[in-house]
């Protein structure tokens, strides 16, 4: 509330000096712009750009995060359970996670083209190492008593992985996914800013040229809302699917 109030005052002050000021548009103007963006189709394509942007971005984000989660689950479990895999793969993953993902964005664009694949790849590459390390850590922290108990019940390593470690790794995976959604959005918007023809990040960087602060602010608020909703959804899924993991992740 205070932030909104401060914005209102700042905006008022600037427009008192220059009524055509574009840097801090009036809240009323933002609402008006938002309404126009959400409801009115683009003159040329006939689509409502706001929604096509949202769909394009969410699709990239979804693929990227899903791929990252899948890879992380497999490698996290293997590294966490098998000591051989730990000694072989763990240093590799650690080094991999040191590479700044944005620095290899040009490589991705060169290798994978400017299409969807490179953007999805950037998101996946950006958050996978973190997810792997977090999951491996969690799996390695399982009490050895549980593993021994499973062994005395006759379980093979695969059975321990599937029936003991995997179910206990899943809520942690959701938890770390929630944490890595922030970086995922960052990579998405960065990739879209560089090369795209649709997407929330693309639109923001496009209208920046016209100093269209009202559009940018609408998009920023929308992205924040989307991120919040995704986080909430993951939290609800976690609570519904894993009621036994009582500690709040």
């Amino acid at each position: 509330m205070l932030v909104l109030l401060a914005y209102g005052i700042g905006s008022e002050a600037r427009r008192a000096v220059n009524p055509a000021d574009k840097v801090l548009p009036a809240p009323a103007q933002i609402v008006e712009t938002a309404q126009r963006l959400i409801t009115q189709p683009d003159k040329r394509s006939g689509d409502i750009l706001f929604w096509t942007d949202t769909a394009a971005s969410l699709e990239r984000l979804g693929y990227g995060v899903a791929i990252a989660a899948g890879i992380a689950l497999v490698f996290g479990l293997v590294i966490g359970i098998l000591p051989i895999a730990r000694t072989m793969l763990s240093p590799f993953v650690n080094v991999l996670s040191m590479i700044p993902p944005l620095a290899i964005l040009p490589i991705l664009f060169i290798m994978l083209g400017l299409g969807e694949v490179s953007k999805v790849a950037l998101i996946a590459i950006g958050i996978t190492p973190f997810l792997i390390r977090d999951l491996a850590q969690r799996v390695a922290e399982l009490p050895p008593e549980q593993i021994v108990k499973a062994q005395t019940l006759g379980a093979t390593s695969l059975a321990i992985g599937l029936r003991v470690a995997l179910p206990q790794a899943l809520p942690r995976l959701l938890g770390s996914l929630r944490l890595s959604l922030g970086p995922a959005w960052l990579f998405l918007i960065a990739a879209e800013a560089v090369a795209a023809d649709a997407g929330l990040g693309y639109r923001i960087f496009l209208v920046r040229r016209y100093l269209a602060m009202d559009v940018i602010l609408t998009y920023v608020i929308w992205i924040t809302l989307l991120a919040f909703l995704l986080d909430l959804a993951l939290r609800l899924v976690s609570r519904f699917a894993f009621p036994w993991a009582e500690e709040g992740l």
């Binding site: 019940l153 006759g154 379980a155 093979t156 695969l158 059975a159 321990i160 599937l162 029936r163």
Partner: peptide
């Protein structure tokens, strides 16, 4: 699970 874990190699 006490019966299932040892029943086969995937434990189900």
């Amino acid at each position: 699970a006490a019966s299932a874990l040892g029943a086969n190699f995937w434990g189900g």
